[in-house]
Design a binder for these strands. Structure first.
Length: 508
DNA sequence: TTCCGACAGTGGGGTCGCAAT
DNA sequence: ATTGCGACCCCACTATCGGAA
């Protein structure tokens, strides 16, 4: 199959707004792709590369070579070249990699070049990723989408699942099993604004409340004396977290898959800032020294496999029993089972007082349904707010083209002026985007680089955020974590906005 | 007919490792 | 030594579609 066939389908999918229409276009193509190329086609059309990353980003694609006029490149050829680029990028020379990128793009028409550039940049933007592709694979193969989804949970990679479905149908899908040593797609949580709201979502039944630790999600696999550890995106980090391997090897079972969180704790048990945990887990050099300085702790909260028995389909309460039989209390995430709102709120106050992030509320009956947010797990975190001044705004991309979107936020400096604390584009409705674009252009001030529009500091906006973190980037040395717009405050003047001192107090 | 769950899109700050400057 | 880039860790929120109620 030619690359251009895939590009044409991608363009048709982009033009179609109805989800079922997108599925139809994708399924039609999957119906005529050969078995060797199914994996590649599914990968490209769900917005990823079979190689995952190849070390080529938007910057490397700034000056593409002259395009060809006739499309002749096959999927197999393009895939092989990308594999070579990945291999070269892994062993050094930027120049060699650049030559291969040029060779690849020189063999493509401008239409194909544009597609591949977006694919490499991770910005396909055709309105279809895994969710839509699952339906397309189901339609093209004749298998129920539930079987496709289930196989994806266990295998963690849709192109492999899709290729199996297209060649072997539902039988092939049902042959996928949890395999120790290969990561499972992790179960994700939705969110609620308060503990009471989370309990209500759970339907008034007793629920489990678990401490939410602000570290790195880990999935630990043990087979005999071999332990492997994976992140939420299924990347392996075994070498970076030796503490975790040792902890798992100390357990009485040797055929295990556990779900948990690693976090750097201070000697008094309070958590380090998230940056410290993230830095520790990301560092690959001199891990032995780093673990002396910043040891990691692990807390497990779920068991997917214990003593060679798969537990994913069991209700959460039964997985908990298996977990408690296998893992000593010191390695378990603190939890409380209750249906009582007052008790739940007291537990929430406990976790916040201990310096942790919040709670995850879990229904006792839900199976381990990977990849779907909001089903059985709901996170609750405390929310801070500040009234800040809009200092500038940036023009948006994609569906926000032509709208001023990303706000630069400033706190008032009591000595005069404003100190920038970060940016946000979150929480804006289309109506608000339209309003602020018009309003900002009235108060635009000073030169623009064509991207950022500086504003007279006149508008006050109420911002919600999760916390204040140290920042090397901003002049005040601090930045807001996960800032989002709640509403504009036309009732407030800029000289009534919150001050940098208020923000600094929140960081301590 | 209305409601609501799932999905895609739009980007945020911080950090590491690597190659080039 | 510093800088630019790619990748990935954490993530909130809105709009939309289409099946469920």
């Amino acid at each position: 199959m030619l690359l251009i066939d895939v590009v044409r389908v991608s363009e048709a999918v982009t033009r179609t707004s109805a989800r079922l229409g997108k599925v139809g276009h994708l399924a039609e193509l999957l119906g005529r792709v050969g078995p060797d190329e199914a994996r590649i086609a599914i990968s490209y059309l769900s917005g990823e590369l079979p190689q995952r990353q190849v070390g080529v980003g938007w910057r490397s694609l700034q000056d593409p070579p002259a395009p060809k006029l006739v499309a002749t490149a096959t999927l197999t050829e393009v895939d092989a070249l990308l594999s070579r680029i990945k291999a070269v990028a892994g062993q050094g020379s930027q120049a060699a990699r650049k030559d291969l990128v040029t060779e690849l793009f020189a063999g493509l028409t401008s239409q194909e070049q544009a597609f591949l550039a977006r694919l490499l940049g991770g910005e396909l933007r055709q309105g279809a990723l895994d969710g839509v592709m699952i339906e397309a694979v189901a339609k093209a193969s004749g298998a129920p989408s539930a079987d496709v989804r289930r196989a994806l949970t266990l295998r963690g990679w849709l192109p492999a699942v899709g290729a199996a479905a297209l060649s072997g149908g539902v039988e092939a899908l049902r042959a996928f099993r949890l395999e120790v040593g290969r990561a499972v797609a992790p179960m994700l949580a939705g969110s609620a604004p308060s503990v009471a709201a989370a309990l209500e979502k759970a339907g008034g039944q007793p629920v489990a409340l678990e401490w939410k630790l602000d570290g790195i999600r880990v999935q630990a696999h043990r087979s005999g004396d071999v332990v492997r550890v994976f992140t939420r995106t299924l990347d392996e980090i075994t070498a970076q977290v030796p503490e975790l391997a040792e902890a798992v090897l100390g357990l009485p079972e040797d055929d295990l898959v556990l779900d948990g969180e690693v976090i750097a704790l201070q000697p008094d048990g309070r958590p380090h800032p998230f940056q410290v945990s993230a830095s520790r887990v990301a560092s690959k050099l001199d891990v032995a020294r780093l673990r002396e300085e910043t040891p990691l702790s692990v807390f497990f909260f779920d068991a997917l496999r214990v003593a060679a028995a798969d537990l994913l389909d069991l209700p959460y309460s039964e997985r908990q029993e298996a977990l408690a039989r296998t893992v000593p209390p010191g390695l378990l995430t603190p939890r409380l089972v209750t249906g009582d709102v007052a008790k739940a709120e007291a537990f929430f106050a406990d976790v916040v007082r201990a310096g942790h992030e919040g709670l995850v509320v879990k229904t006792l009956t839900s199976p381990y349904a990977a990849g779907r947010r909001g089903a059985g797990w709901i996170k609750v975190k405390p929310r801070h707010t500040l009234d800040l001044v809009v200092l500038a705004a940036e023009w948006g991309h994609g569906r926000r083209e032509g709208k001023l979107s990303n706000l630069h936020l400033g706190a008032r400096d009591p000595d005069g002026g404003y100190v920038m604390l970060g940016k946000t584009f979150k929480g804006l409705t289309d109506e608000l985007l339209a309003w602020q674009t018009e309003r900002f252009l009235q108060i635009a001030d000073g030169p623009t680089d064509g991207w950022t529009v500086r504003l007279r500091p006149e508008l006050v906006v109420e911002i919600a955020f999760d916390g204040v973190q140290r920042s090397p980037r901003y002049p005040g040395g601090m930045a807001l974590r996960f800032a989002r717009v709640l509403r504009y405050r036309p009732d407030k003047r800029p000289d009534e906005a919150d001050t940098v001192d208020t923000v600094r107090a929140l960081m301590l």
